[in-house]
Every structure is written in structure tokens, then in C-alpha cells.
């Protein structure tokens, strides 16, 4: 019973955090802030995916969250690198 409420609360927190990040992506003052907001969205989405795994009681979503973590990291580095050098692989 406690666990159910805690899961609802945490999912709500991360969903609100995702909405804030989305708003930040739309209305950020500069490009680095947008990249940071996208990176935070990826991290929050991993949390929501793991929470969904707990709610469903399966371990299927871990592979998906590992993949999303890796792709998110690579894409953030690529964006930052592109901003820094105008090129991703020199």
C-alpha cells in the first residue's frame, strides 16, 4: 500500500520534471541550455522507464533504459562537440 503511493508520487515527480524540461527546451535563452534540457529529459525518461518496470513487475525495460542512457550520452556529447568545434569527428 505504501509502495503503491510512493510509486505514484515518484512517477508524478518525474513526469512534472519532464514537463519542466520540455518547457525549458522550448524557451531556453541559449543553445547550451537547450542541450542541457534535452540531456536532463533523457535522464528523467530513464527514471520513468525504470519506474514503469517496477509497476509492471518485469525486468524487460532495463535493456531499453541502458540503450537510452548510452544514446543520450552520445547525442549530448555530439551536440556539445558540434557547438564547440563546428564538427563532430575531426
Amino acid at each position: 500500500m505504501i509502495l503503491t503511493y510512493a510509486l505514484i508520487f515518484t512517477t508524478g515527480c518525474f513526469a512534472l520534471a519532464l514537463l519542466m524540461n520540455l518547457w525549458r527546451v522550448v524557451s531556453a535563452p541559449g543553445v547550451p541550455d537547450r542541450i542541457l534540457a534535452l540531456d536532463t529529459m533523457v535522464i528523467n525518461f530513464i527514471a520513468i522507464l525504470v519506474l514503469y518496470g517496477i509497476i509492471e513487475g518485469t525486468a524487460v525495460y532495463f535493456e531499453a533504459s541502458i540503450l537510452i542512457a548510452m544514446v543520450g550520452f552520445i547525442s549530448t556529447v555530439a551536440y556539445a562537440r558540434f557547438m564547440l568545434r563546428g564538427n563532430i569527428i575531426e
Binding site: M1, I2, L3, Y5, A6, L7, F9, T10, T11, G12, C13, F14, L16, A17, L18, M20, N21, W23, R24, L36, A37, T40, N44, A47, L51
Partner: peptide, 23 residues
């Protein structure tokens, strides 16, 4: 259940604070 709830609630608050700080 209480141990899991403590971890989950703490994590939720930290996630929310992180995204709020971004704004």
C-alpha cells in the same frame, strides 16, 4: 515496503529539484 518508499520518495524529490533548478 517502507525502505522502498523512502528510496522512491527521496529520488522523486531529487529529480524534481534538479529539473526545477534548471528553470
Amino acid at each position: 515496503e517502507i525502505v522502498l518508499a523512502v528510496f522512491l520518495v527521496t529520488a522523486g524529490i531529487f529529480g524534481l529539484v534538479g529539473s526545477f533548478g534548471l528553470i
